[in-house]
Design a binder for these strands. Sequence first.
DNA 1: CGCCAGGTTGATTTCGCTCAAGCAATGTGG
DNA 2: CCACATTGCTTGAGCGAAATCAACCTGGCG
Lengths: 243, 243
Amino acid sequence: MAQSCTKHENHACVVCHVGPRSVWHDLDETASALLAGGRRRREYGSGEVVFVQGEQNDGVHCVSGGTVGIRRLDDNGNSVLLELAYPGDTIGYRSFLTGSEHKTSAEALGPSVVCHIDRAAITALLAGNPALGLRFLKRSIGELEHAHDMMFRQATLSNRHKLVHLLLVLVQRHGRRHSNGSQSIDLPVSRRDLASMVGTRHETISRIIGRLETDGVAHFSGRQVTIPSVEALAGEIDRLISA
Amino acid sequence: MAQSCTKHENHACVVCHVGPRSVWHDLDETASALLAGGRRRREYGSGEVVFVQGEQNDGVHCVSGGTVGIRRLDDNGNSVLLELAYPGDTIGYRSFLTGSEHKTSAEALGPSVVCHIDRAAITALLAGNPALGLRFLKRSIGELEHAHDMMFRQATLSNRHKLVHLLLVLVQRHGRRHSNGSQSIDLPVSRRDLASMVGTRHETISRIIGRLETDGVAHFSGRQVTIPSVEALAGEIDRLISA
DNA sequence: CGCCAGGTTGATTTCGCTCAAGCAATGTGG
DNA sequence: CCACATTGCTTGAGCGAAATCAACCTGGCG
């Protein structure tokens, strides 16, 4: 579990520097100084927007606490939550590196802390640290693998299986283990967003949730989900793979 | 349109060096020599595999002629065609850079020419040319944007609209303009693969094709597609966006 | 208190999946 | 050259799933 830095408000954000997920860890002194100078920390309330699709890029952001949703919109009001970013993740780096406007929006899905690193600082950092570019490359490749997995699932799994898979992913990051072996999640997203992630309508998500309830594999109450046996839930998908 | 290098069989592959799509263009002399030494050209017949999912990576490949399909498989025999690679595209670089086994398979979708660049050569090239890493980064980012677009469409468009969109993409690269304004495509893929790209079953693709025929917006005959008016076809999707 | 956003539920229709049959093109071995 | 299998595609019937449209509920919140 990555550490939030809400306890270090007065200090430099540790997560962005040393978090193993972060591209910024393990920089030399001059680079660290450069980073410290160009970074500005800010707290976001639930629903607050970090950057907006279409807006011109003005540097990158690094999540240091909370959860940030990356969303794509179209002119018809359709909204798809493409991915979730957690402490240590750098976001908005794609439009920075390609010098284009933001292709997605980012918003805090709960109280969050996000640092902004300005254009000049990163440009200087990249010029002085070739390794930094490679780390961005690895991160980008990781996201690409993730997207390919997603595309594959979208094409092969049923809606129910896709929702189950999503729950299994969320439980890893947001799950609280209970004494009796069950786990609970505080969903960071609305039903509509769940629906967009599964690729269906929110009414359908409601109904699938109903079926999961009657099957006893998950219990939903608002954004609270309790899963009696994560193994049983995972079995729904593994069965497909091993069958 | 990118040039195939089938006419330069005895020479070094030009596309890989100077193609604007290629990450290898515009290298200095020593780098070019390094590249020339580590590269081996090979022709592939239709259906021949370039590399196989699960196999250990042994360098990268650069498409220099034809079309190569990037495919993901699972244990149940499900197959999804994730993307198409064209002359100038470098493939298999992700597993190379992350030092892992191939996460996808690549196969020639028609007579193709693909160069292989061995491990040692790229490692040396990357070490000596920081710019090369950045080019891989940009390419990776481009693929990621593409994957996000795909995810968005999968979640918002109907199967018919997804197929129409796919046809519009294919016509750009494979289309032959006819004198009366219509365009023809030689589809590089089977109906099953079309289905996997749209995220549905091949029977459904057959039926959608039937409807496109009766609506007169496209005519299918085997892998030959004729589109009387690409604009009319594009209108099916634009209507959604502007509506 | 009324309003509103988010969520659930219901009724209806459309759509897509499954299973199954049929068909054309291709290849193969006798 | 033919019988035969194979592969890729199409078509049909039946059924289950999901989209749509609509009503309604619930918990904030001005």
